[in-house]
Nucleic acid binder design. Structure first.
Lengths: 184, 184
DNA sequence: ACCTGAACACCGTTCAAGT
DNA sequence: ACCTGAACACCGTTCAAGT
């Protein structure tokens, strides 16, 4: 996902147009739309789209990157005043809540979160840091890895994709995840 | 998913052939195979397959039903001697472990578990019963519903689909789910 | 270097004709 | 009632020709 600086000016512009078009089309029609539609909206040939983004996932990851960057920024700003475990929980809930803006994103979110996109790197750093803090202060089990969090986020996003009252369900599942199913 | 008894003998046989063929093909090539391939293996026209199973999910649910029936039976036999919370945990782990025999099943397992298939009914009953028992003896939070379990099973199955060392990860995620992320 | 879009391949789905 | 498979529609992907 590295930015080739050798990219010719027109090529770079096409790349940005494709991402902008993809953003629009994914918002309207979800991740199941034809890539043809994205190319048409961007005003480029379908071949150009394939040249820039070898797979559908690559395009999705690139398109979603900006949103992840923004969320990572929000986290850094807003979570300083929370205690470590609350911040971690807020992070998880926030991530899952953000994942459903494109219909069908959830199915690819695991891939997206490993794509190496700037936004993906950013949320990864923030998440790992929040987890580590919560563990250092003794609140969270030491055998929980960041990949577990990714799994759980993927998991919850996918599981509640077609449910109604999503935020409530997300909060509930996150609560189960944090507190366990056992009575206290 | 009701069994029409008015089904003509040859039609019924075709139905069974299609299911048997689907079982084979799904095992070999996963849930992404063309339905054409299933029809060919079954020795019927593609139109016949569509007549019996209006959607891909319907075929998948029907094909998977037998396995779910068998698992429900195993549960009823083997879990009598476990205490209620352990039985519930074993049920969850068992389900998730069974879900990955067809590649790509996990993505549809939510749908499959709501298809009304005999096997689906069976595992639903067993699961609801185990949950209720674990709650009655005070071990499990009363605000956990059976649909939460379905979500979590879906969730874990999907999340670890392409991971290595699946059983270990499943056990770990189930453990997190039961015990929570907090240190004890 | 990069772009275009016609061409090819593949799959899902329907439906007229046949038994 | 049911089956068949050709026909249609749609999408992904490649690549020869063009700038």
């Amino acid at each position: 996902m590295e930015q080739k600086t050798t990219l010719r000016a027109d090529a770079r512009q096409n790349r940005e147009r494709i991402i902008a078009a993809a953003e629009e089309v994914f918002m309207e029609q979800g991740n199941a739309t034809s890539l043809e539609a994205v190319a048409k909206r961007a005003g480029v040939g379908i071949g150009t789209l394939y040249r820039r983004f070898a797979t559908r996932d690559a395009l999705l990851a690139a398109t979603y990157s900006d949103r992840l960057l923004a969320f990572a920024q929000t986290c850094r700003e807003g979570m300083a005043q929370l205690d470590a475990p609350s911040a971690l929980r807020a992070y998880l809930e926030g991530m899952v809540n953000h994942i459903n803006i494109y219909e069908g994103l959830a199915a690819s979110i695991g891939m997206v979160l490993q794509s190496g996109t700037p936004g993906c790197e950013a949320v990864g750093e923030v998440g790992a840091q929040l987890l580590s803090q919560a563990q250092q202060c003794g609140a969270v089990r030491p055998d929980v890895a960041f990949t577990d969090l990714v799994h759980i986020m993927t998991a919850i996003s996918l599981a509640i994709e077609r449910e109604s009252e999503r935020p409530a369900r997300i909060a509930h599942l996150v609560s189960i995840f944090f507190d366990g199913v056992y009575s206290r």
